[in-house]
Nucleic acid binder design. Sequence first.
RNA 1: GGAGAGAUGGCCGAGUAGGUCGAAGGCGGUCGCCUGCUAAGCGAUUAUACGGACUAAAAUCCGUAUCGAGGGUUCGAAUCCCUCUCUCUCCGCCA
Length: 425
Amino acid sequence: MLDVKFVRQNPDIVRRSLQNRRTEADLDRFLKLDEERRNLLFEVEKLKNLRNSESEEIARKKKAKEPADELIARMKEVSQQIKEMDEKINEVEKSLEEILLTIPNIPDDSVPIGESDADNVEVRRWGEPTKFDFEPKPHWDIGEDLDILDFERARKITGSRFTVYKGAGARLERALINFMLDLHTQKHNYKEIFPPFIVNRDSMTGTGQLPKFEEDAFKLANNNDYFLIPTAEVPVTNLHRDEILSKDDLPIYYVAYSGCFRAEAGSAGRDTRGLIRQHQFNKVELVKFTDAQSSMQELEKLTADAEEVLELLGLPYRVVVLSTGDLGFSSAKTYDIEVWMPSYNRYVEISSCSNFKDFQARRARIQYRPEKGAKPVYVHTLNGSGLAIGRTTAAILENYQQSDGSVIIPEVLREYMGGLNKIDI
RNA sequence: GGAGAGAUGGCCGAGUAGGUCGAAGGCGGUCGCCUGCUAAGCGAUUAUACGGACUAAAAUCCGUAUCGAGGGUUCGAAUCCCUCUCUCUCCGCCA
């Protein structure tokens, strides 16, 4: 959510942001309503002031046993007027809020302007796309041939876009979770959080999933206000919703494993096979709370922390900075980390690292005091996958597959796999 | 699921026969004074949002709102009425 005053004073910046993002919001109506609201407030507050002072006068008269009937009658009318105006103001404010919640964050100046993901800019590359001297298989075939992924039975017990992991596959998934949590807590100083996988409406609104993207979320049928989390970002960022932190608390680094649940409305037909796009997947998420001065620098560090996972796993990747046309609603700047996926013959997103600046914090009311006794200001929030587990599993299966159908376990994972160094038939 | 209790400022905690209550008191915080230092003491101050005036911008000043949320009664509500939400205690059930 943007600051109302900012929008009022900088309509041109907001308009340009909307254009660059190739998105729309009714900015003109917002500005008009905003002015209307202020005019109404000015009038109604005058009336309220009158009512307050005259009410005191009535009290005085009554105490002094003087007649006050005439004054009471007049105030009755004033109160009626106030009531009507208050209703009008409520309507206007509701409309304003609705529009404000549909206005996306202002992209950082360093973000390239572009139409779509085609205009994202590659900033670096690590490793080389894996070469094979045989015909490599996609991970869904590898998984079924090794009997470690079972898409067929997942369809039976639940439906499409679910997977049953079995044997070494289940172990690999669990190993990756533990490996990543250990790396980020021990080497990068994140504090581990194990959050609820179900959150309420306020939390979903606080991080920006609602109201605009309700159709993408799974909502619990027996409780209107509970949602399955689409990412640990939601519960973890909302840890500090409605809080005022002290300067000494910052920066805060959290890492959380969670299951993630996405309805993926509107993505029918995309990535229908394998682990890439699921209704339920695992993810280790990095979340930071920082002050305004350091957030851009913290984004670089967070991205590097996620990249290190891929480097330790020996998986080739590249980093792209999202253009304005591809940038997420709440984000001011986002780096996508893309891993080399042989079956796609291209790099595939495996982590998305974003700086939301104060956009989420304003919405979730997360503040800190820069100085003792100073007025609270909004923190900056950041997050990124570190990494998406299912896609990492897919990338390992594909990049580490051997001509005999087996899959080598990356060195760093072996201790998490009970010493297993290869998945065989 | 059954029974009961409660939601007031950073915290604790008064305030229910409606009228200077944004709200006593305490703790905590800040500023100043004082004691050679520390402890103690004294004085003052101590919410947020929105709107307006003044500003380059602040500071400041004025106003309005806020005692869980929403609605109602009334000239006037923390105080009365209705609805909802949440928290706590006990019982039951349960990994």
